[in-house]
Design a protein around this nucleic acid. Sequence first.
DNA 1: CTGAAAGCGCTTACAG
DNA 2: CTGAAAGCGCTTACAG
Lengths: 337, 337
Amino acid sequence: MKKVTINSVASHAGVSKKTVSRVLNNEPNVSASTREKVLNTFKELNYSPSPIARGLAQNRSFIIGCIYDNPSKSYITRVQTGALAACQENNYNLLIHPCELRGEALIENIQQLFQTSRPDGIVLTPPFSDFAEVVEFLKSKNIPYARVASATLKDDSITVRSNDEQGAFEITQHLIELGHKQIAFIKGHPDHSATAQRFKGYLRALAQNNIEFKDELVEEGNFSYHSGVDSARSILDLSPRPTAVFASNDYMAAAVLKLASQRKLNVPDDISIAGFDNAPIARHIWPGLTTIAQPVEEMTKQAVTQLISHISQPQEEPYQLTLEAELITRESTAKIN
Amino acid sequence: MKKVTINSVASHAGVSKKTVSRVLNNEPNVSASTREKVLNTFKELNYSPSPIARGLAQNRSFIIGCIYDNPSKSYITRVQTGALAACQENNYNLLIHPCELRGEALIENIQQLFQTSRPDGIVLTPPFSDFAEVVEFLKSKNIPYARVASATLKDDSITVRSNDEQGAFEITQHLIELGHKQIAFIKGHPDHSATAQRFKGYLRALAQNNIEFKDELVEEGNFSYHSGVDSARSILDLSPRPTAVFASNDYMAAAVLKLASQRKLNVPDDISIAGFDNAPIARHIWPGLTTIAQPVEEMTKQAVTQLISHISQPQEEPYQLTLEAELITRESTAKIN
DNA sequence: CTGAAAGCGCTTACAG
DNA sequence: CTGAAAGCGCTTACAG
């Protein structure tokens, strides 16, 4: 069977291919009868227009590329969910392209993406949202992009973030209100802007309550479960042992919980544990983790929706939005004994 | 700045565009000096060929589409990891396209994908790997596809599976060897072929050890954590309470563990719990879950690698491979008290 | 309301 | 070893 193209349809329907194209794109200036004739031919020949040909003619691919390098798989899943929602609403498709932030060939890797495909726009997720090198590259290539959860890099592009500093403040405040003063903190990945933001929120809450900051209570993690295990070990070995631990994400908090359980510590009676992100694991373990719910799906959906609308008609005003995070209290935090 | 195309390069280098195309594609029959001249022009003009134009001319997109509908996010993440590895090795890109198996418009949804993009091939993951309607559709459209973890549907296409029945047999055998006879079982999603396979393995182990099968020990889950909670409730309410629970995946097993912990049951002393998949959560919780490690990434990578090679040159022999699953024992299972 | 021509940026098939 | 022509399947810009 031969491939059916706009030409087959045109000749079969006895019209020009321009008219077929008009019907295809719902353009005006086609008589009702002609339109119907063409529509029937579509069905008869089982015609389906080639997106590649349209792409070449219009210089568009209807593809959004998602660039990420994130130790938290569940974060990526949520990003994808949000991005897909926006794409589906707009007849776009989503291409995923993980990159290694610290790889030798980051920019080459992204260039590679554009050599093999040509997304109409890129959604940048942490840590790339704040990575000047990548942002500059996209700008130099004139590729539309949107940034999710950026915090530090000033850039007049589409940006949707949540208030990490405030979230970290609130959860620390929550621990303080429960009577905790010795609150250990596990930092996230140093390349992620959220890491500094969450640390800031922690510091602000301590300061506001006149609690002395102690460097020995702070551990360097990297958002991975594994790094949480290492940090937990150091923290639980401290003497006196802190009465609470605030980890910069739920994976690391889960690691603290696991290690504490292994050591027969009772959570929250012996030690309170809090996380960040409201990842699935936060409610899948026992006790459930007190955490900060970030609207990751919503942030990404908003960012991609704006990106797509910007692609069709570039806007003057850059779209910048900050969504609020929300404290979720579960069983892992309690009043100090 | 004007867009630089094969024409700009050709005229700038003083050759025909066919020659430029030859250099681009590393074809022979270009003199070393000409090749170098063209290569230099590439750099000088910062030329990057248009994948869309090439796609139209070659009728290829260098895109693989991944179709899925899976309640387990971590499974999807692993599928993506494997598919991406294969794509990257072959200069392909990965498009993700979730579908609702039970949505009214499943086929329309997939058709939609082909109206907005045109992947060169499709990788089908559970439950679609065994879904005749989808397979038939792709076949009718002459779209190359590969199936991951299919178990029941006979189809002479590229298929990579793991031995779910044997894995389930082994983990049940493991529980039996620990002295358990009252082993509850939580089924997976009825639309997934793995569900029946895992149940079969459970039954075979019981039979082989002359343990009577009891219907009341079997709960219907759907692979989601939430369904695990419901099933766990019923199981823990049984009297006498089973001494072990084998859940068809780790999420549901984690749910059993959480509920047991909430009820102050000690795992594994009061009750042993086993899962399936070796999802991250299996090692992130305490006690760690005894489970079956399935090589999901490897299965998908193999499937996509074969798919891509089949796209370039269709093979006669269909590629069919079965990988073995492996029992991982952790702290959640122990000798019966 | 309709269509013929040119073009998107490449490759294929052929000629020399 | 090199290139002119035609074509991939659409859209754009223009003419009527």
